[in-house]
């Protein structure tokens, strides 16, 4: 059975065809793990756990990085 994963990333709906880890999600989004920080359902996911953390249906993910600011 194929279980689709519907998640929100930075407030936008995203659908993955299968269960997926944070690392795999970043790869699909073409983002480099060392340049971002991730929050999943308001909890920070340490970078060391990206590969072993699987997204769950309905997760709310925030992916942030440093930008210019004062």
């Amino acid at each position: 059975m194929v279980s689709k994963m519907n998640v929100f990333i930075n407030g936008e709906p995203h659908c993955f065809a299968r269960s997926i880890s944070i690392s795999a999600m970043l790869k699909e989004l073409r983002l480099m793990p060392e340049k971002v920080a991730i929050e999943r359902n308001l909890q920070i996911v340490p970078r060391s756990l990206f590969s072993q953390t699987e997204l769950q249906d309905g997760d709310r993910i925030e992916i942030v990085r440093f930008i210019g600011g004062g």
């Binding site: 990333i9 930075n10 407030g11 936008e12 989004l29 983002l31 971002v36 920080a37 925030e62 992916i63 942030v64 990085r65 440093f66 930008i67 210019g68 600011g69 004062g70």
Partner: peptide, 10 residues
């Protein structure tokens, strides 16, 4: 340098 933190542009 001061920096800000914002969502990545997907």
């Amino acid at each position: 340098v001061t920096v800000a933190l914002r969502r990545v542009n997907l």
